[in-house]
Simulated scan of single mutants.
Amino acid sequence: MLRFLPLAVFLLAAPAGAYWEYGHETVASIAMKNVRPATGRAVRRILADQALLQTPECPAKTPEQAAYWADCVKPLKDAAGQQRFGYAFNWHFQNVNVCQPFDLKPACKDGNCVSAQIERDVALLKDRRTPRKAKVEALAFLIHFVGDLHQPLHAGDKGDLGGNRLGAAYGVYAPKRFNIHSVWDGPLAERAITSGPSLVRRYPAADRVRSGRGTVEDWSRESWLLSRDVAYASALGGDPCGPSPEKITLDDATVARIVPAARESVRRGGLRLARLLDEALS
C-alpha cells in the first residue's frame, strides 16, 4: 500500500491524470477480499507471469501492484524513443459532458474509453485461447480501469479534460499543478478511504450483490452523475454547469460533505471489480 507522505510532498510528486496509488490499491484490495477463493487463486496464478509484460520498472506481482501498473507504464519508451503504451492513453477515461444528456457513444468511439476496455478485458480473461502475456495485461488493465471508472472525473467533465483545467486549492494546499481532478485523485481519495472503518474487508453477500448490480454502462452513468452532482457542483457553488473560474477553493466544510460520496465510490469500485473477476476467472 502507499506509504503516507507529508501531504505537500504527496501532491507534488504524484502524476496528473491518475487515480493515485492509494485509490487504485484500495479498490484492488477490496476486490481480493470479496472474490471467490478460486478467483483469488486464478488472479495470483496469472500475475505470476507478470515478467511477460517486460516492464521491470513497473511490477505487477500482486493485485495491488497490478492496480497501478497501467499508470506506471505510461512514460515507458521503446528503443526508438516512442511511448510503448501510448495506444492506451485514452482507455483511462471517458469525457462525457455533464451538462448534456448522458451518452457514451461519442466518448467511446472505436472502443477508446474506459468502459469499453473494461468489457474487452473481461472478454479476454474469459477466453481460454488468450495468450498468457495478453491475459496478464488484460488483468492488470481491468484492475486499474475499474478504479478509474469509479473516480468520477474519469467519467464526466465539462470540456476541461476531466477537471484538469480547473485549478483548485485543497484547504491550505495549493501547489501550481493542483486542479479539481487531482483533488479527487489524491488527497480527497486518501481522506475518504481513511475516514471511518477500513473499507478493505469481506462484505456480507447481500451487500456484494446489491453493490455489484448493473452493467458497466450503468456504472458509467452513476459515476457521471457523481461528477456532475458532487464533484462539479461542490466546486462551482452548487451549479455544475455554471461558469468555471480560473481557480476554486475547496474548504474543509465542503470536503467533509463530499467525503462520503468519494468513499462509497471506492467501495463500490472494489465490489464491482470482485464481481467482474469472478465472472471472468471462476
Rank of each mutant, 00 (worst) to 15 (best):
A51P: 06
G86M: 11
P75M: 04
F85H: 03
F93G: 00
A60H: 02
G81K: 08
D71G: 02
A88C: 08
K77R: 15
V96M: 02
C99H: 04
F89R: 12
T55Y: 11
A66P: 01
H92F: 04
N97L: 04
Q54G: 13
A66K: 01
R84N: 03
T55I: 10
G86E: 06
L104P: 02
E64G: 09
D103S: 15
A88V: 04
P63Y: 05
P59V: 14
T62M: 04
G86F: 07
Q50T: 15
A66G: 02
C58H: 02
P63L: 10
F93A: 06
N95T: 09
Q83R: 15
P59Q: 09
F89P: 03
K74Q: 10
F102V: 07
P59M: 10
L53A: 06
A70F: 04
D78C: 12
C99P: 01
Q54S: 14
D103G: 10
H92A: 06
P59D: 11
K77E: 13
K105E: 11
N97P: 03
Q100Y: 14
A51D: 14
L104Q: 03
R84D: 04
G86V: 08
Q94I: 07
P101F: 12
L76Y: 00
A79F: 09
K77Q: 14
L52F: 09
L104E: 14
N90V: 04
D78A: 11
K61C: 08
N97Q: 08
E64A: 15
N95G: 07
A67Y: 01
V96P: 00
V98P: 00
K77Y: 07
A79W: 12
P59S: 11
Q50N: 14
D71M: 01
D71C: 03
W91T: 05
W91L: 08
G86H: 07
D103P: 03
Q54Y: 10
N90D: 11
K105V: 12
L76H: 00
A51S: 13
Q65A: 12
P59W: 07
A67E: 01
E57S: 13
L53C: 06
D71Y: 03
A79Q: 12
Q82N: 15
L52H: 07
K77W: 06
C72A: 07
K61F: 08
L104G: 04
G86N: 06
P101Q: 09
E64N: 13
K105Y: 09
L53F: 07
L52D: 07
N90I: 04
F93I: 07
D103T: 12
Q50A: 13
Q54C: 11
L52R: 12
